[in-house]
Design a protein around this nucleic acid. Structure first.
Lengths: 256, 256
DNA sequence: GTTATACTTCGTACAGTGTACGCAGTTGAC
DNA sequence: GTCAACTGCGTACACTGTACGAAGTATAAC
């Protein structure tokens, strides 16, 4: 139900948090927790029970402290989400694939996909602006290196990386939502379609929508196996890279 | 802050609501409101103040009734969102563009984009499953007709339409978020980047991320004009359709 | 050694959210 | 005239993020 915003406060404060450069004070009691402890606990909750379950109270309970204690470590929930994001981006292997740009971009897409599948809550965080932590920076640098030196302008490099990332984000979100809706509703897409068809036909006469009826049925009967989700991802990625290819060829051989 | 789920209750009830086929009872007082009145008011709130502002209480206030009154017309907020979605999909012109599939798919992308830009709250509704109302059905039928008869299988037709829709959804969401974050933060992307660079450089040494520094600056200095958002959309759509083209050519001339 | 200061934890409170429940009043069927 | 079906809606509940301030503690300054 909830898409949460990441933080947007003071740049210096946020960066200190992301890079763990908080100047530790001399006076006063030593803090009982660390930023990393809180982030670890938050990730555990988000990974296992979803982002909606990760309330500040729940998280505090998990850590055995009062809810307001967390606000000594983070200005607000948004900043915590920022650090969580940067942390999981650190899980990217960031493999340096030898060969052409296409293989590299393919790797970028695949690694991001795996990450999203492992932490589906990431898809519910609306990043107003990327949290410029160490892992986000390294990720962006690595992604840009996939399209460096093939004749694209700086802006085109950014657009291309954003395009691939946008595709992966959308594709995985669709897949994850599809998976979750099956769990919540207890119905597969096929069952859901078959449950609606008779009512729909009675209310409106499905013959008015011949293509929808035909394709809907075909999709419903084929798309119950999980491999099909993978197939849709591959299909879209191939289309996308084919499209990028057209641009790259155009840029690398402008005299042709 | 909130991404809301659309409804997922009894199919018959939901379809009755979407198609306005509620059997009106004979006994009891005549309802003071209609489904359409509520939906119109809800759309007004969502369009002007965003989805977060569209609470049931706010909506009820707007209509001059008690909050719980709305639950006489809709089982829950999810179902209301479903009807809202189906209603705005009715604004699609669904123009029948003459010529090739590419022009038709292009039109599909453009009309959907316009709609999302006009009703940005749509992007925050996580549709677990499409609300099968009259306008959603007509939209799907129209979209499928763009890729009918060019040699694709039924499943490929659905995948292709979903791919284009997914792209538009993601692209517009990015653009809308970018627009909104400027309003909320009072900073353009360039200003934001320039506010972070000195801190980032001090904390970590930006020279470790040469590509990011170069490209980030280039993007920041160019992407402040609104036309650039349009440009990014065009760029991605061209890539995508190029990619689809590769598949269509392959299917239409398999003997080559 | 005392005091002042900076820092900690966290209970309480506030303004929200969606909606379950049940009561009071109204209408038409019998 | 009676009853069942229906409508509007007040109240309540379990949540949410977090502002405020009180109480306690460790250290710097004197």
């Amino acid at each position: 139900m909830n898409q949460e915003y990441s933080g947007s406060g003071d740049p210096a404060k946020s960066l200190e948090l992301l890079w763990r450069r908080r100047p530790q004070p001399t006076r006063g009691p030593k803090p009982a927790l660390t930023v990393d402890q809180i982030v670890t606990a938050a990730l555990k909750v988000a990974d296992t029970d979803g982002l909606a379950a990760m309330s500040m109270r729940r998280l505090a309970d998990e850590l055995g402290v009062g809810a307001m204690t967390l606000y000594r470590y983070f200005p607000g929930k948004g900043e915590l989400l920022d650090v969580m994001l940067d942390t999981v981006y650190g899980e990217l292997p960031r493999r340096d694939v030898p060969g052409e740009w296409r293989a590299k971009l393919d790797e970028v897409a695949r690694e991001n996909r795996e990450l999203y599948l492992r932490h589906p809550w990431m898809l519910q965080v609306a990043i107003s602006r990327p949290p410029l932590g160490p892992n986000v920076m390294a990720k962006y640098e690595w992604e840009l290196s996939a399209v460096e030196g093939i004749g694209l302008s700086d802006v085109e490099m950014d657009s291309t990386v954003a395009l691939v990332n946008g595709y992966v984000h959308g594709a995985v979100r669709t897949a994850v939502e599809a998976r979750q809706v099956i769990l919540r509703s207890g119905m597969t897409d096929k069952e859901w379609w078959l449950a609606h068809v008779p009512h729909l036909d009675q209310i409106s006469d499905l013959a008015k929508f011949p293509l929808s009826a035909r394709v809907g049925t075909a999709v419903g009967s084929e798309f119950d196996a999980p491999y099909d989700v993978d197939h849709a991802f591959e299909y879209g990625l191939e289309r996308l890279l084919d499209g990028v290819s057209a641009l790259v060829v155009n840029r690398s051989a402008p005299e042709g």
